[in-house]
């Protein structure tokens, strides 16, 4: 089983996690910018954080055979603090980095006017930079928040296939399915979704545009629940290709829209799963935006 965790906060995790993730088949992750539990109070701590997730964390992951990319945004909670909103003019230079494959995570926390404005700004940035967007749906008042998010996305004019609404559940998934956005699910030990509930949603709605992540962070969470969801899919009768579709091909397709995604095996490590080549393709997507040497190394078609 090869796994691409499309939403995980590795700065909050240990090297033991990286080792266990590699052993479970994880070969690629995307780390969306988020908050630290303790609210930030200014721009400089944000910039250090962005540098960490596009630099040091990327290197740390590579030591364990895991490709690491980032998504950059001002998170919804801190969008309410005027001291943090000053980071918005700084986002552009990060969104041009080769390691950044999306804007995110943005969206709603308390659904304030400030959050409306920042979400609209992020969607506009995504359009201008040609990047996908990871949109967090709120913990509180989730159904209402999801509906409002979809309306803001529609009004922004961004293509729905460039947007994933994350942390969905049984109550909110159908709203998103009918709008053409990607559907993200965070599998948690005891909140959000669990592997069996995830399988039930996949049985009901299919595997198209579905992204499964661990959203592991500093809270109670488990970076191996993506693998467990894959096993639960197999136990429920899904085929290996469908599991690969959800846990690898789908996130590759979604973030590949950035033109920057590189999921080739790191030197000295193997891809995992059934084959180095999948359907004769080296899986390097978006070769046009890749540096020439990387393209030559990967031998992409």
């Amino acid at each position: 089983m090869r796994i691409f965790d499309p939403h995980i906060h590795m700065t909050s995790r240990t090297t033991d996690d990286y080792e266990a993730m590699y052993a479970a088949g994880v070969r690629a992750v995307v780390e969306p910018a988020f908050w630290l539990g303790q609210p930030r109070t200014g721009v400089s701590s944000y910039l250090d954080y962005f540098d960490a997730i596009t630099g040091w964390e990327r290197f740390r992951a590579s030591q364990f055979g895991i490709r690491h990319h980032a998504a950059i945004a001002l998170n919804p909670k801190e969008a309410n603090d005027p001291r943090c909103r000053e980071v918005l003019p700084e986002l552009g230079r990060y969104l041009r980095r080769e390691s950044v494959v999306a804007v995110g995570e943005t969206g709603y926390d308390s659904m304030t006017p400030e959050e409306d404005e920042v979400l609209e700004t992020h969607l506009d940035l995504a359009k201008r930079h040609g990047l996908p967007v990871v949109v967090h749906t709120p913990h509180r008042d989730k159904k209402h928040g999801t509906q409002r998010t979809l309306d803001v996305v529609a009004n922004s004019g961004i293509a729905p296939e460039l947007v994933v609404l994350d942390h969905l559940n049984e109550v909110t998934v159908d709203l998103v399915a009918e709008r053409g956005c990607w559907m993200g699910f965070s599998i948690y030990p005891d909140t959000k979704m669990d592997p069996q509930r995830m399988v039930a949603i996949l049985q009901r709605l299919g595997t198209e545009r579905m992204l499964v992540n661990s959203a592991a962070d500093w809270g109670r969470s488990d970076p191996l629940l993506t693998a467990e969801t894959g096993r639960a899919m197999l136990d429920a009768g899904f085929g290996a290709a469908q599991v690969d579709g959800v846990l690898w091909e789908n996130p590759v397709a979604f973030y590949g829209q950035s033109g920057r995604l590189d999921v080739t095996p790191l030197p000295g490590f193997e891809l995992g799963g059934d084959a180095e080549l999948f359907e004769g393709n080296s899986i390097l997507r978006g070769a046009a935006a890749m540096p020439a040497e990387a393209e030559a190394t990967a031998g992409a078609s």
Partner: peptide, 14 residues
Amino acid sequence: RMAEDLAEEREAAG
């Protein structure tokens, strides 16, 4: 209403 929506989510999640 917010409480009712949350209860609906909790029920759907078992």
